[in-house]
Design a binder for these strands. Sequence first.
DNA 1: ATGACTGCAAATACTTTGCACATGT
DNA 2: ACATGTGCAAAGTATTTGCAGTCAT
Lengths: 147, 147
Amino acid sequence: MQVSEENQQTLTQALDKLGLRSTRQREVVYSVVGTAKDHPTADEIFARSRQQMPTISLATVYNCLETLLECELIRQVNFERESTRYEPNLKPHAHFYCDKSGQVVDVHLPEDLYSRLTELLPASTSVSSVELNFRGKLPNSPENHQN
Amino acid sequence: MQVSEENQQTLTQALDKLGLRSTRQREVVYSVVGTAKDHPTADEIFARSRQQMPTISLATVYNCLETLLECELIRQVNFERESTRYEPNLKPHAHFYCDKSGQVVDVHLPEDLYSRLTELLPASTSVSSVELNFRGKLPNSPENHQN
DNA sequence: ATGACTGCAAATACTTTGCACATGT
DNA sequence: ACATGTGCAAAGTATTTGCAGTCAT
């Protein structure tokens, strides 16, 4: 996997905005998370990053993920106390965790439903994030599928 | 705080169903969580339990909480990677975490909205849990209020 | 007596941090 | 040269576990 010209630029611009440098490590981590559709954990991102850069360390992966979060290029997803997962999809949406296969999938959340959710709170409440997570079993999901 | 006659019986019955014993420790932990309205963490439950039973250990509190979860007398609430919180409210509802005061409050979730949420998933999906968490600032919330 | 429960201390899992070295401008 | 970033190893936090001793029936 290689960083596309386009993503490369997105990264550089976002880092620039915060006065941060584009480094090879950040490029690698961003290329991994930016193209991942399976909500990988830090460990999984570490493993995939090492394929592109065998010398990268787990601590650096965590550092880079932190930086990418600050740049708002990626997001975290948490399911109970399991390892934090990372994804490039920034639009408000829900998640489904399949107990059978262990996979996490995005669930589309229509805008009107999203706003109905925030209306559950007193009007004067400022909401900074909404997290909607489902858990259960997907039909026909393989046992322990990996993307 | 003392275990009410009524809750005592609820506990004994629920434990009985799983062939488990009612112990003083379980009674204490259940009396703490069962009457708490502030979604305490294991540490907070430990502190409150020690007021009734100074010799109780944190490990036992965790053991008891695990048992109470199995009996379906209490539930867990997780906010990102923060300490797990426990609550006696078993009805489907949402949670709001106030960044200013640190308090967690229940948010009523109307039944029709709850079912609209589960309809986001393919009909054949079996859903075992729905978690809806808000984060933000409550109006007029004190700094670091404790219930 | 037997099986279940407690509570200590150690282990675990995930994540963060301090710091010496490396790197880019 | 200077500020920033990397990566190792160590620390930290929340939770779980092994096990010897204790308790209830």
